[in-house]
Amino acid sequence: MHIMEGFLPLQWCIVWWIIALPCLLLGLYQLKKVLAADRETLPLLGVTGGFIFILSSLKLPSVTGSCSHPTGTGLSTISFGPWITSVVCAIVLLFQSLFLAHGGLSVLGANIVSMGIVGPLVGYAVYRMLRDTSVNVYLTVFLVTALADMFTYVTTSLELALAYPAETGGFVSSFVLFMGIFAVTQIPLAIVEGIVLALVFKYIVALKPDILIRLKIFSEEKINAARDDAS
């Protein structure tokens, strides 16, 4: 669940926009470079965006009955890097606020920072660490997704805590409180999302492994090893 319209005070909306903008500009610059090299990437990026939209509109089977959803940024992060993902994410978040009343316009900056920047950055770091090791493809996908999801919500708690610090203990105790509210639903959910995306990956490896090789997500040997595991 994104922060909704009107929840953050004006000054914090502005702060998060100021943090989000340089990342978006960097993403835009990279996007232009990628597209100048290969125009075919544009529709592909569009498809990725559509996929993120659909995934984050899906309601996951959740243990506690909350209405959380996958962030869906994992695959895009792995294939295009975190900065381009942040641009795609910004567009998806805008569409979600306009199509589903999910999120908001003044808080868009804050939501871009949590779902479009911090989550993908963490996911990308995990992916780069594990890519060239012998760690199984599915485990990598599980960790990337679960951690990206978890850190998205850690950032959301941070944003809420900074805007509404506690009287005693200030920012820290308020952060702990918001983390507590989220942790109940979010830790099981991040794990479920990890499992689901790992299974999605298994499905893609079985049916259309050429996509993964063409996107250079994993090396051919690793995909072949994963196919052998599956069969």
Binding site: L44, V47, P61, V192, V196, L199, F201, K202, I211
Partner: peptide, 19 residues
């Protein structure tokens, strides 16, 4: 969980083809 994964996987492949 299994159905959700199949659904997402099918959606990814379908969106790739559409692209």
């Amino acid at each position: 969980i299994h159905s959700c994964a199949t659904l997402c996987g099918a959606a990814f492949i379908a969106s790739w083809d559409a692209g």
